[in-house]
C-alpha cells in the first residue's frame, strides 16, 4: 500500500482538565474517502484543527503528504483544502471573485476563463457565477469551496459536516463531486453525523469516541452491516 496522505499517530490533546484526544491514530490514503464518525465532543473538530495547523497537539505526530504542519505550516497547508459546514466567503463578492481571490492568495495564477471552467466543473449554475455570494444557497457556496480546493490541486481534502443542512438532491450532487475528487486521487477526510452519507460515500469509516479510535469499518464491511447499530453500540460502550 502507498504511504498515506494524511497520517495521524498517537495524537493527544488536553484542554485544562479535559482530555480531548487520547492517542488517536488514523491514516487516509490517496483516492480514499474516510468518514470520521463520533458523537459531539468525541474529538472530531480537535483533530481537524490539529490537521489544519490551527492547534498544537500535546503529543503525537501528524503528516500531510509527508509534511508536519507543526513544523512547516505553510507547506502543509499547500497540500490541504478544507470545506466546513458553512463555507466562509465574502458575501459581497461574486462566486468567481471569491474563487479568484482565494486562489490568488495561494499564488495560483489562472485566467478568469480558467476559473469559470472550474466553477462549471463543480456544476455551479452559470447564472450564479457573477452574482454576489450573499444570494447563494448553502449548496452553491460549497461548490465554490470545492472549486477552491480544485484550483489548489490539494492532495488532501478535509470536510467538516459537509452535508448537514443540504436538501437530498444537493446532498447527492455533493457526494458525486466528492467521489470524482477521490477518483482524481485526493485523500478525503470527512467528519460527519450523517450515517447514511458515510455509508454511501466512504471507503472506510472510523468511529471515534472520547478521543480514541474505537472501530474501523472497511468499504466491504459497510455493505453488510447496519452502520447505525455498530455506531450506537460503540458509543454506548464508550459512555
Amino acid at each position: 500500500m502507498t504511504t498515506p496522505i494524511i497520517q495521524i499517530n498517537n495524537l493527544q490533546k488536553r484542554f485544562g482538565e479535559y482530555q480531548a484526544l487520547q492517542g488517536l491514530s488514523l491514516a487516509v490514503h490517496q483516492g480514499e474517502i474516510l468518514a470520521l464518525l463520533g458523537p459531539n465532543g468525541a474529538g472530531k473538530t480537535t483533530t481537524i484543527n490539529c490537521l489544519l495547523g490551527f492547534l498544537q497537539p500535546d503529543a503525537g505526530e501528524i503528516t500531510i503528504a509527508g509534511v508536519n504542519p507543526q513544523l512547516d505550516v505553510v507547506t502543509a497547508r499547500q497540500h490541504l483544502a478544507y470545506i466546513p459546514e458553512q463555507v466562509a466567503l465574502y458575501p459581497r463578492l461574486t462566486g468567481l471573485e471569491n474563487l479568484a481571490y482565494f486562489s490568488k492568495v495561494a499564488s495560483i495564477d489562472k485566467t478568469d476563463d480558467e476559473f469559470r471552467t472550474l466553477l462549471a466543473e463543480v456544476k455551479l449554475p452559470s447564472h450564479a457565477v457573477d452574482k454576489p455570494v450573499a444570494t447563494y444557497s448553502k449548496g452553491m457556496r460549497q461548490k465554490v469551496g470545492i472549486a477552491i480546493a480544485l484550483a489548489k490541486q490539494a492532495k488532501a481534502l478535509i470536510l467538516d459536516e459537509p452535508t448537514s443542512g443540504l436538501d437530498p438532491s444537493a446532498s447527492h450532487e455533493f457526494s458525486q463531486l466528492i467521489q470524482s475528487l477521490a477518483k482524481q486521487g485526493v485523500a478525503i477526510l470527512m467528519a460527519t453525523h450523517d450515517l447514511y452519507r458515510a455509508q454511501e460515500d466512504a471507503h472506510r469509516v472510523a468511529i471515534i469516541n472520547q478521543g480514541q479510535l474505537v472501530d474501523t469499518l472497511l468499504f466491504e464491511q459497510l455493505k453488510e452491516v447496519q452502520l447505525e447499530s455498530v455506531y450506537l453500540k460503540h458509543i454506548k460502550v464508550g459512555a
Partner: peptide, 13 residues
C-alpha cells in the same frame, strides 16, 4: 467571525 480568515490562512494568506 465569518470564517473567511480560516480559509484565507489555509490558502497561505
Amino acid at each position: 467571525q465569518g470564517g473567511q480568515l480560516r480559509l484565507l490562512m489555509l490558502q497561505g494568506g
